[in-house]
Amino acid sequence: MTAMLDTVLVALILSNFVLLGSSRLSSCIRTAALQGIMAGLLPLATAGAGLSLRIVALGLAVVALKGFVFPHLLNRALRESATSREVQPFVGYTPSLLAGLLALAASFWLDGRLALPTHSASSILVPVSFSLMFTGIFLLVARRTAVNQVLGYIVLENGIYAFSLAVVRDIPFLVELGVLMDMFVAVFVMGIAIYRINSEFDHIDSDRLSTLKG
């Protein structure tokens, strides 16, 4: 069980690297969807013997939302805008990858320093969740296109979700559903925003919005 959990966690880190190093937006969306599915399956792996219907239902809801609904919404927004790749990010792809590595090292260091009271089966769940959060924040800051920024937001949320699994574990069902609902509305609104930005300005480069005049 631990070996499987570790493999999923390593796959989460690898999907971070792909997101940081890939310029094609459609493959970024696919990778983020895969990451969402893996994050959704995490509670099933961490629960072990205490597997209950509640955990299964929650995992399935996360998988459905992050693995299928969000990518669908984002792909539609992408299809409407004629953008297929991020041309000029603020930070290039190789430096982004190096930044991801630094964030990973920092996550493991931070985990060693914090010594959080976890009751998780895997010793790398907390650092991986930190690394997901850092990667999400980095994507939010370092990318121009709105789609990538939404992906950064989703990755950040994946990180918080994994962190809550490791540390808190028993969040009431309603609270988790509420968070998921908020995520859904946020991505939905952002999808509409991307669509509106694109139809008004013929691009989804959020950086150029700062030159708008009132």
């Binding site: 690297f17 990858l97 190096l98 991801g100 590595l101 990973l104 010793s123 790398i124």
Partner: peptide, 20 residues
């Protein structure tokens, strides 16, 4: 970028090995 990816894999492996 591909080679940096290979470096990233090696370093990730090193961190994981130290942890495991």
């Amino acid at each position: 970028l591909l080679l940096a990816g290979a470096c990233a894999l090696s370093i990730l492996a090193f961190i994981l090995a130290s942890r495991f």
